[in-house]
Every structure is written in C-alpha cells, then in structure tokens.
Simulated assay, not measured.
Amino acid sequence: MSIGTPRPLPVGGTVRRLAGELWSAVFAADEYAATETVLAALDSGVDPETVLLDVIAPVQGRVGEEWAANRLSVAQEHAATAINERAVAALARHPAARTVPTRGRITVACVDGEWHALPARLLAEVLTLRGWHVDHLGAQVPAPHLIAHLHRTDSDAVALSSSIATRLPAAHAAITACQAVGVPVLVGGAAFGSDGRYAFLLDADAWAPDARSAADRLALGPLPRPRPDHQQLDDLPHLVDQEYTLVTRNSTSLVRTVFAALEDAFPALRTYSEPQRERTAEDLAHIVEFLATALYLGDEDLFAGFLTWTAGILTARGVPAHSLTPALSLLTRELKDFPRAVRVLEHGAAALVPSLGPDTPAPVPADLSTAESPS
C-alpha cells in the first residue's frame, strides 16, 4: 500500500463493534483493555487511520457527551481522555503505523491556553501516516514559542487546533504571527465554528472541519503563502470601541463586583462553603470571558450559544437554568456604558428564555458548584 492511500474501510459493523469495545474499556477505566482493542484491530488488518478517526475519535466525542449529560464526572472524563491518548500512543508504535516521510513538514499545535490536545494529536498521527514529517507541539503553545519553532524549522504550514471559543483571540494572535513569518495556517476544532466562520473572520489560510478533511486539504497541494498585506490584529473594525480591551483588562474586578452584588441581593450566598464560593466566582469568570470573546469577534450569537449550552449542563445536574439570570442582570448594570456589551448580554438573556419554562420562579442564584467543568 502506498503512503497516503488508505486501505478500504472495513464494513460499518466492524467499526461499530470496535468503537463499542473501546467505549466499554474507556468507561471502565481499563487502559489495558483499551490498548488491546486498538492493537487487535491493527493486527487484524484494520487501517490505522480508520482506528484513529472512526473508532478512537467517536469514542472521545462520546466521552464529552456523557460528561455533558452528567453521566461522567470530571475525574472520569479526564481518565477516559488519558486512556484514549494512551491508545493513540500504542497505535503509533504498532508496525502497521510505521511510515517514512515522503512529503513536506507540518507543525501541529494547540492554541495558547487550549488544553484539549487529543484532536491535534489525532491530526498529527494521521498526517504522519500519510507521509508528512510532523512536529507535534502539544497543548497550549504560546505564540512566541510557536514562532521560535518555525524559525528553527522549515515547516510548509501550521495546523492550529482549538476547542474552546474563548481561545480565539489567542488563535488570532498565533495566526497573524505565523503569517508574518511567511508560514500559512490551517485551523480546525470546535472553537472555529461548525462552518468555520471564525476561521474566515480571523483570516486563517484554510479551515477543515475534522482531521481527515485537514489531511485531505494538505494532500491537495501547498497552502498559499500569506499575502504581504495579511490581516493584522487591529483589522476587526468593531474593536475600535475598546470594549473588548476594557472588559478583559477589568475582568477580575468585574467578577468581584458582581459577586458582591449577588451576596447583597441574595444573602443565602453568604452561607456557601469556601469551595462553593470559589466555584461560583469561577462560573462568573467564565461568563465574563465568553462575553469578552463575543466582543472580540463581534458575534452576539457566540455568547448566546454559550449560555444555552451552560443552561443544559446545569439542568442535567439539577441546577435550575434561571440561576444564570441574576448574574446577567448585574453584569448589564455594571456595563451600562458599554453598548455592545449590553447588546450581547441582552441577546444572551433572551436566548435563555426557552430554557427557563413558563412558570419560572424569581431568579435565585443556585449553588453552581455542582456544574463541574471538564477543562
């Protein structure tokens, strides 16, 4: 078999059976059973790329879905992810996955602050299987470190991964920095939108919805070298109003002020334990961070989507969705002189209405500490 020409996919039933076996092992936190499932599939002739993208990747997606539905704890989610990562490592060492580079060089990295490294690892392994020389830099790579690496190597392109939308300002900085040294950037991951809208907004050179599509795009030919007049960080005209900068710069004091106002409005908050207070402050910080990102991108729907997702997470954990509304009201009050921020907050509050139900009681901030984050 020539490199880059995968064997025919096994019948769907085989893939489903393998994914079911891997899920059972992952759910049971059985690393040995997981790696044995992967290695046995390779021994039986299943193509390594199929195992990576049609077995391991869907199982990892299910891990996230089960966490969101409150059927996996954060600890279980972390353990499951670690087992999948070990399964990928076992696959990479199998004789069926050994390849000799015959193509160019690709640098694969996660955006600064992005800890969800498995999607980038899957892409790195697929590109390796297809004959690329791959430099996989792993999770949360600061832009200066990425650029230093590019100066030391001769990469044909950078593949940049991000799963969390709040990392998009950092992604923009990395994209611009890579383009400034003449290296094109392909981006992917949930953060860039299911349709790639934020990839195009931030002027990435290419976008792919998944690892297979990214590898296919790179196989078509080299990405175009960045234009001399590539987009600069201040080329998003809505940032002229400085709302993003001011909200970001003052986020800590904003969270502190809103938390104090919540205590004044709802004295029951003062009875929270210290871990509950810390967790509530973290929740407020997440809200402010997504608000700032929506301001950066000029996209009210991003913030609304975050709120409705959060409402679903809370509901799955027995926390009423209306516990979000007091914080939104207080943030709106504190940011009354920021018209774009107010519009984003009001749009988000309106998007929450279907989640609240027709007989929603007066909003009281519930203990949000049960809404653990997997990040």
Results as ranks from 00 to 15, higher is better:
68 A>K: 11
164 I>C: 04
179 Q>N: 13
140 Q>N: 14
65 E>F: 01
60 Q>E: 11
62 R>Y: 03
142 P>I: 13
147 I>P: 00
100 V>S: 14
136 H>S: 14
162 S>W: 03
117 A>W: 00
111 V>T: 10
87 A>F: 00
92 A>Y: 05
191 A>T: 01
81 T>N: 02
129 L>E: 06
175 I>M: 07
189 G>Y: 04
71 R>F: 03
139 A>K: 13
193 G>Y: 12
191 A>K: 05
68 A>G: 13
109 A>C: 07
153 T>D: 13
150 L>F: 09
156 D>V: 02
191 A>Q: 01
109 A>E: 02
185 V>S: 02
108 V>S: 02
139 A>S: 15
129 L>D: 07
156 D>G: 03
128 T>S: 14
75 A>M: 05
108 V>C: 04
70 N>R: 11
194 S>D: 15
61 G>K: 15
163 S>P: 03
194 S>I: 08
63 V>W: 03
93 R>W: 09
154 D>W: 06
98 R>M: 12
165 A>K: 04
78 H>P: 01
151 H>I: 06
169 P>H: 12
135 D>L: 09
182 G>W: 05
88 V>I: 13
138 G>F: 08
172 H>Y: 14
73 S>C: 05
183 V>S: 02
72 L>H: 09
193 G>Q: 12
87 A>R: 00
160 L>P: 02
188 G>W: 09
175 I>E: 11
94 H>W: 11
168 L>T: 12
193 G>L: 09
142 P>M: 13
171 A>W: 10
111 V>S: 03
169 P>Y: 11
188 G>M: 12
128 T>R: 14
133 H>K: 09
112 D>T: 03
73 S>V: 05
180 A>I: 05
170 A>H: 15
136 H>G: 08
130 R>C: 07
136 H>P: 06
58 P>N: 11
75 A>L: 07
70 N>I: 02
173 A>C: 07
173 A>Y: 11
164 I>R: 03
59 V>D: 07
92 A>Q: 12
114 E>V: 01
181 V>M: 05
156 D>Y: 01
79 A>S: 00
194 S>N: 06
142 P>H: 13
150 L>H: 14
116 H>Y: 03
77 E>D: 08
170 A>Y: 08
159 A>N: 07
80 A>L: 02
83 I>W: 04
138 G>L: 08
156 D>Q: 10
170 A>I: 15
152 R>I: 04
179 Q>F: 09
122 L>S: 02
60 Q>N: 14
137 L>N: 09
176 T>C: 14
171 A>Y: 12
172 H>D: 14
178 C>H: 06
177 A>E: 10
111 V>L: 07
189 G>F: 07
84 N>G: 14
145 H>I: 09
149 H>Q: 14
150 L>I: 06
155 S>I: 02
113 G>M: 00
64 G>Y: 06
102 T>Y: 05
118 L>I: 15
156 D>F: 00
65 E>R: 12
178 C>Y: 13
124 A>C: 06
79 A>M: 04
136 H>R: 13
87 A>M: 04
187 V>Y: 10
62 R>Q: 15
155 S>L: 04
122 L>F: 02
123 L>I: 08
83 I>P: 10
71 R>H: 09
79 A>L: 03
61 G>R: 15
138 G>V: 11
67 W>R: 00
68 A>W: 05
74 V>T: 11
101 P>Q: 12
104 G>F: 07
127 L>C: 09
137 L>H: 06
165 A>V: 07
121 R>V: 04
102 T>M: 10
133 H>Y: 08
179 Q>A: 08
154 D>T: 12
